[in-house]
Design a protein around this nucleic acid. Structure first.
Lengths: 315, 315
DNA sequence: CTGAAAGCGCTAACAC
DNA sequence: GTGTTAGCGCTTTCAG
């Protein structure tokens, strides 16, 4: 009826009718049923699904925040899930979420199962892949190249005179993006003529303690390293702590570099050498790309969000 | 039809029929429409809404993780929102989410607008209030007392011989829970006969820099403090950095205490005196309380999750 | 064990 | 500017 038009802010009713409708709705405490709306109209869903690797990651917290701010302002609701870096789990999540007929999806990373891609194709749902840039996205992509991050850091450290580098990673066989950074790092070092000496990729989650023990392992194997690149800032800070506990001076005796641009890194007496990732901006850009697509506005399929190498004082 | 029964794992069909249905569903790539299911059945919604103050908070990242793990394992989907510590914004969010007819809601804090409470009552939706304990919840509550956290820290610091305490807060006029901790701290100090000397509650978000400048402000006003309690660990760490920059020894010249149990606090050469909050456990308990209610199982309305004062070496 | 009928609340398309 | 009709895909209830 006319009520529907009024409540949805449509056109084609008198001011008088509108007021009457609004008043009645208020007095009866009317709450619309979006389930019915989305169901009946098939277009009207304002649900957006977003899947991240880990909800406990500080970086992804900021991405989520960027997405949520942009979407909620436009009247969309966010459904979230975590996949523990597993494409299998992502597929399970996508299968669940797709059944709610979301207006669009935001996925983290570019690695998906064939099943996920097929599900998405069938649903014809707009998809933004974020974080790890791909030039051939399923649909849209917002991010940067992890390989390039690693390569840039490699070149930078070579430029600072480092010659014997090591690498400490985490989440072995789960996180393909960390692996891409390591690969980029390795490649840059090799082409500068000073190849990576040794590396240790732990199975653990990338935290403070993993960095601490990772560096311990690395140095027990090969004592003469002059710089170590870590999976992320938390691990780098763990590495710093280990270096200090062993009486090693940073950066004189050993250089330490991280990745991610964690806020807490400002805690350190010396600023950490790292790569700053514009997390909130990525979230915002992803949400905007999605909404532009939903509104049929033209937008680019691939948005590159540049990262920034912060020289710091530890590398 | 029978198909519905099979796909939902009901009873009343032959094994043969089941196999046929499953096969056809697979070959045609059938994806159920949960919108229609939830709409038609009114009971069947597996949506759970959760509202947190800030998505960028490390602590709430862990709470979210606890909730998500528990719920996704049981087949529920999580809709999230952030309210920037504003009950008004929370009401707007609840209004949106309620219109999706969720199975239940998880809210942070015990401060809600009358509108929110009325909305919840009308929808008869199960609600878990987390984080800040209330003995008279709307429905269910999982958390701890912020007042007690502050009081406990006050007593502890008095016990360590501190006599001239200050407090640095954040999010003035927004965060009632931080205010409760301060109140508890103040009360404990007063009843020990050594009342709070001075306090500064900033408007800013509680981060590293807010702690740094907060301590600066406090000391410029009153130089002879022997301990300062901060809104949270991030701020305490900022305070530590300021103390160091001024050549003050911690804990000899001045004590520093935080709250929250931030992982990165392990970065410090000396362990931070703080209160550790079992974030993941709160999320898990909240999800479980909600699901128990949904299944009609008996459960307690108020679950107290104890915090733990970590003595550390800075207080 | 299987099928037929009705209806959930809303929106779209079309009359009035 | 307003009302009518039909139908979205599922679940529930009730017959076979």
């Amino acid at each position: 009826m006319t009520v529907s038009r009024v409540l949805r802010g449509g056109t084609g009713f008198s001011a008088d009718t509108r007021d009457r409708v609004v008043k009645v709705a208020e007095t009866m405490g009317y709450v619309p049923n979006r389930l019915a709306a989305a169901f009946g109209a098939d277009q009207a869903s304002t649900l957006v699904g977003m899947c991240v690797p880990r909800l406990t990651s500080g970086l992804f917290g900021h991405v989520l925040d960027g997405v949520d701010r942009a979407l909620s302002r436009l009247g969309y609701q966010l459904m979230i899930g975590a996949n523990s870096h597993s494409p299998k789990e992502e597929e399970a999540w996508v299968r669940q979420v797709i059944s709610w007929r979301p207006a669009g999806l935001i996925l983290s990373g570019r690695t998906h199962t064939a099943g996920t891609v097929e599900l998405l194709r069938q649903a014809a749902s707009p998809v933004v892949e974020i974080w790890d840039l791909t030039t051939s996205p399923i649909d849209m992509s917002v991010g940067f190249s992890h390989f390039d991050c690693g390569a840039e850091m490699g070149q930078f450290l070579i430029g600072r005179g480092r010659r014997r580098a090591g690498y400490v990673g985490a989440l072995a066989q789960a996180d393909v993006m960390g692996a891409a950074r390591m690969k980029g790092f390795e490649t840059a070092l090799a082409s500068a003529g000073h190849p990576l000496i040794t590396s240790e990729v732990l199975i653990d989650a990338p935290g403070f303690y993993a960095g601490f023990y990772g560096l311990q392992t690395l140095l027990s194997r090969e004592a003469r390293l002059d710089v170590v690149y870590f999976h992320n800032d938390e691990m780098a800070i763990g590495g710093l702590a280990y270096a200090q506990s062993r009486g090693l001076r940073v950066p004189e005796d050993i250089g330490i570099a991280g990745w991610g641009g964690m806020e807490a890194a400002s805690i350190l007496p010396r600023r950490l050498t790292t790569t700053v990732v514009p997390t909130t901006a990525i979230g915002k850009a992803a949400a905007e790309a999605l909404v532009a697509r939903l509104k049929g506005e033209p937008g680019q399929d691939v948005t590159v969000v540049p990262t920034r190498l912060a020289p710091g004082e530890t590398g």
